[in-house]
Nucleic acid binder design. Structure first.
Length: 883
RNA sequence: GCGAAAGUGGCGGAAUUGGUAGACGCACCAGACUUAGGAUCUGGCACCGCAAGGUGUGGGGGUUCGAGUCCCCCCUUUCGCACCA
């Protein structure tokens, strides 16, 4: 054993040992309980960032902990290898996305291995391999057969200069990121997956996921957004049809004073035909971003169509407006407007002088009078007024009555609506799974026959930013129609990369299966027992995966309702963001290392300048570390300087896993110091532990004979077991930072135990309990550390001669008898303020405790001369004297 | 704008879920050891105050013997908003 801790030697030896023994190979064994621990697989962006280190360290702690708890553990790893950044890199460097992706994977894999994660690398997969994505294609065709996949048009961002579809991320302030051109909306044919058909089940099953964080379940429930309401038809004035709207506030129907439609609504198109001004407005609405956040924060604008509809109950003529805040993709693309009782309608009506009619009165009398000027909308539930036959009703009664009246006239009915929309999976991009369809002028859209799968993606394309390179590849495009054999054209759209990540967790159970998408090994390993990933995936990825799992179940491929039994949502790792406008009007980012930051007295950032040119830089606040914002921190320097264990310990210690983490490596010295101290302690006590282990082998009673041990030893042992108990509790609730604290406290305790003084009779007893408390304490400490800092734990475990490998050691158990105390200390309060401490026997009754408390000189000073109203006693905790 | 969270010393955080606020670290200060140290060890460290004591968990109210924790209002920050992954 080396005297000084050398992380390079320790980590290399441990990793070689695990590799040579195949320590982390997971083998199906139905006789043992399994534990499938999965961290969200990374996008191979180039190198690991701190978010990865955090994510995979948390996953590895859970993996190794459960192994110690006796589970048959599997922790696999793969690569979410398709996606936009590879195309961007291709444009910047002229390298094919496939090559760039391969190089990144090789580098990042070596980084993950250097961190010592207990991964079964035999199960590694990458989504850009035909062996994987062929099953995306295969399942898509099954969905097409079942009607789960279907085609319709969808709206995309269109860059008119590059003649290409842009991702939302590539649209900055309404302009294309490369060209600076104003982005337009464009409708194109796309494929959708009918996730809305599963809305009810996706919502209901949330209640059966107790292992998921409450907030994720709430977010998903709100995203699905089930709402009960009424569909109302407003007949067109000319009798040619009716404008359909959906409302959750049918009780306010009698207060509707106009209707509004989206710019893309057929009614708007019709009205714009003879009205150049309106046509211009509709065109203006079609410019700008398709992002909901942008649309929702836009200034509300509108224009009358000149058309009118008939109120279905009052028969009144209501004007129809085009409004930029009505979304075509949501509901019917039209709304009825009740300005008196809806904030947005109120704002719009006030701006354009549309009538406001109050039809709901507060039951508390707060909003009873009908009076101008109007200050605000009253959007609460109340009682209907000014509503003719429907007046004087509660929300429920009014909704029922109005829905019944509408139904009688065949102008409406009660209906459930979801906020959730079907999942559009078509991408007009190269680096993704080809959608397996062939377009034939005779036969239409023809599925590629199963025996011709996979449709291989050519790997030598270099995108240039204008359109999809597949459109310029005759070798890919030109195929005979599978039905009529005439020349036809292959579909060039690829699938959303969320498809890839929607089932990879199933494939890890059987990555080598080449005859089917999944096989019977799924039955053993699934569901995932613990899934770990960033909170930013709380909705989309997790919802799509749940949906995909249910589709596969309904196709008879698996017998699983939900993929992830327990979910840990790791907090984001944040850093400051700095940027500049470039000449074209786009934005270029600077890394935090490239700037000098100015702060005010309160520590807020007031400005920043570039280190390179000393010119000012825009401060963009603090946000998630990402490649696109250039604010990531490369963990490589940390790992090389301090080693994997220090990096892992620091990551775990610095904050609880679910909490957002503002990056700051100031505390890393403390982690490093702790590991060096640990090493030195074990080195110095090696002989002691040798003797302690000898005692155990001889079967002496020292381990149980604590009643006559010196107080210092029983006290130390109590502290060690208290900390073990706390650590075990914290491990279960995933508060790993305090597990790390407990390890530090145990080392502090162990270091303070003094060697027994050799004085006569006590010598032998003192020596045996000393040997045992040090041996047992070290054993516990190394065991607690094994999941967090596995390399040093492995090395020290072997060096002092504990049995076997620490990866296979059992999780230590608390000796409750070590915690027992004769006396307990209680906090003494007077009127809730701390006035001292008292010691009482552990089984003292209330009267005895009260007497001790009232006799306490510290308390007497505050009690004397006052009337005691009450004495509150909380057993084992405190006494509060109320005067 | 909508949905979801978070806010505790100079900093990261703890407080076993209504019971001693600041565990464990970082930084800092003082001392010891050393030829030297950015190594190691010992001690100190919320704020005001000489002290007694008082104040204190983003701000303002409330419930309670007792509130960081529960309730109401407000502020700030982060995440998501369907083509970043």
């Amino acid at each position: 054993m080396q005297e000084k801790y050398n992380h390079r030697i320790v980590e290399q030896e441990a990793q070689e040992h695990w590799a040579s023994t195949g320590a982390f190979r997971a083998i199906e064994n139905s006789a043992r309980p399994k534990y499938y621990c999965l961290s969200m697989f990374p996008y191979p962006s180039g190198k690991l960032h701190m978010g990865h280190v955090r994510n995979y360290t948390i996953g590895d702690v859970l993996t190794r902990y459960h192994r110690m708890r006796g589970f048959n553990v599997m922790q696999p790893m793969g690569w979410d290898a398709f996606g936009l950044p590879a195309e961007n890199a291709a444009m910047a460097n002229g390298v094919p996305p496939a090559m760039w992706t391969d190089e990144n994977i090789a580098y990042m894999k070596q980084q993950l291995q250097a961190l010592g994660f207990a991964i079964d690398w035999d199960r590694e997969l990458r989504t850009c391999e035909p062996a994987y994505y062929r099953w995306n294609q295969w399942l898509f065709l099954r969905m097409l057969e079942k009607g789960i996949a279907y085609q319709r048009t969808g709206v995309v961002n269109w860059d008119p200069v590059d003649q290409t579809v842009l991702a939302n991320e590539q649209v900055i302030d309404g302009r294309g990121w490369r060209t600076g051109a104003m982005v337009e909306k464009r409708e194109i044919p796309m494929y959708y997956l009918r996730i809305t058909a599963y809305a009810d089940e996706l919502l209901a099953e949330l209640d059966r996921l107790p292992g998921w964080p409450e907030r994720v379940r709430t977010m998903q429930a709100n995203w699905i957004g089930r709402s009960e309401g009424v569909e109302v038809a407003f007949p067109y004035e000319d009798g040619s049809g009716a404008l359909k709207v959906f409302t959750t506030r049918a009780d306010t129907l009698m207060g509707a004073t106009y209707c509004a439609v989206a710019a893309e609504h057929p009614l708007a198109t019709r009205a714009a035909e003879g009205n150049p001004q309106l046509a211009a407005f509709v065109e203006a609405c079609k410019r700008g971003s398709i992002m909901e956040a942008d649309i929702a924060t836009m200034e509300k604008k509108g224009m009358p169509t000149g058309l009118f509809v008939i109120h279905p109950l009052s028969g009144e003529k209501l004007p129809v407006w085009v409004a930029n805040y009505v979304l075509m993709g949501y509901g019917e693309g039209a709304v009825m407007a009740v300005p008196a009782h809806d904030e947005r309608d109120f704002e719009f009506a006030t701006r354009y002088g549309l009538p406001i009619r109050m039809v709901i009165a507060s039951t508390t009398g707060a909003y009873e009078t009908v009076a101008a000027p109007w200050i605000d909308a009253y959007a609460e539930y109340g009682v209907t007024v000014n509503s003719g036959a429907f007046s004087g009703l509660t929300f429920e009664a009014a909704t029922d009555a109005i829905a019944a009246a509408l139904e009688q006239k065949a102008l409406g009915r009660k209906r459930v609506q979801y906020r959730l929309r079907d999942w559009g999976i078509s991408r007009q991009r190269y680096w993704g799974t080809p959608i397996p369809l062939i377009h034939c002028t005779e036969c239409g859209n023809v599925p590629v026959p199963d025996d011709q799968l996979p449709v291989l993606l050519p790997e030598d394309c270099v995108p240039d930013g204008s359109g999809n390179p597949l459109d310029k590849r005759p070798d890919f495009l030109d195929v005979p129609c599978p039905q009529c054999a005439k020349p036809a054209r292959r579909e060039t759209d690829t699938m959303d990369t969320f498809v890839d990540s929607s089932w990879y967790f199933l494939r890890f159970a059987c990555p080598d299966e080449d005859r089917a998408m999944v096989d019977e090994r799924v039955r053993y390993w699934l569901p995932v027992d613990q899934y770990i990933g960033g909170i930013e995936h709380a909705i989309l990825h997790l919802l799509y995966s749940r949906f995909w799992t249910k589709v596969m179940r309904d196709l008879g491929l698996i017998g699983l309702d939900e993929p992830f039994a327990n979910l840990l949502t790791q907090g984001m790792v944040l850093n400051h963001i700095f940027s500049r406008r470039n000449e074209k009007g786009g934005i270029s980012y600077l890394t935090p290392e490239e700037v000098v930051v100015q702060h005010d007295a309160a520590g807020r950032v007031t400005g920043a300048t570039s280190k390179i040119d000393q010119q000012p830089v825009d401060y963009g606040g603090i946000g998630t570390m990402s490649k696109s914002k250039q604010n990531g921190v490369d963990p490589q320097g940390l790992i090389e300087e301090y080693g994997a264990d220090t990096a892992r310990f620091f990551m775990i210690f610095t904050s609880p896993p679910e909490q957002t983490l503002e990056w700051n490596d100031a505390g890393v010295e403390g982690a490093s110091r702790f590991l060096r101290r640990l090493w030195s302690f074990v080195y110095a006590r090696k002989t002691t532990i040798d003797l302690g282990l000898d005692l155990r082998r001889m079967g002496t009673t020292a381990r149980r004979d604590w009643s006559t041990a010196p107080l210092e030893h029983t006290g130390a042992r109590r502290e060690i077991h208290l900390n073990l108990k706390q650590a075990a509790f914290d491990m279960e609730r995933h508060q790993f930072n305090t597990v790390a604290s407990a390890c530090m406290k145990i080392l502090n305790t162990l270091e303070r135990i003094s060697r027994p003084v050799h004085t006569g009779e006590l010598e032998l007893r003192g020596t045996t309990t000393y040997l045992e408390v040090v041996t047992e304490g070290t054993e516990i400490l190394l065991s607690l550390l094994a999941p967090i800092t596995p390399h040093i734990a492995h090395a020290l475990w072997r060096a002092v001669g504990f049995a076997g490998d620490i990866v296979d050691a059992p999780w230590p158990e608390v000796d409750e008898s070590a915690l027992a105390q004769e006396e307990v200390e209680l906090v003494l309060q007077v009127n809730g303020k701390l006035r001292g401490n008292i010691r009482v026997a552990k089984d003292a009754d209330r009267a005895a405790i009260e007497k001790t408390a009232l006799d306490d000189p510290g308390a007497r000073r505050f009690i004397d001369g006052q009337t005691i109203k009450r004495v509150v006693i909380v057993p084992g905790r405190l006494v509060n004297v109320v005067i």
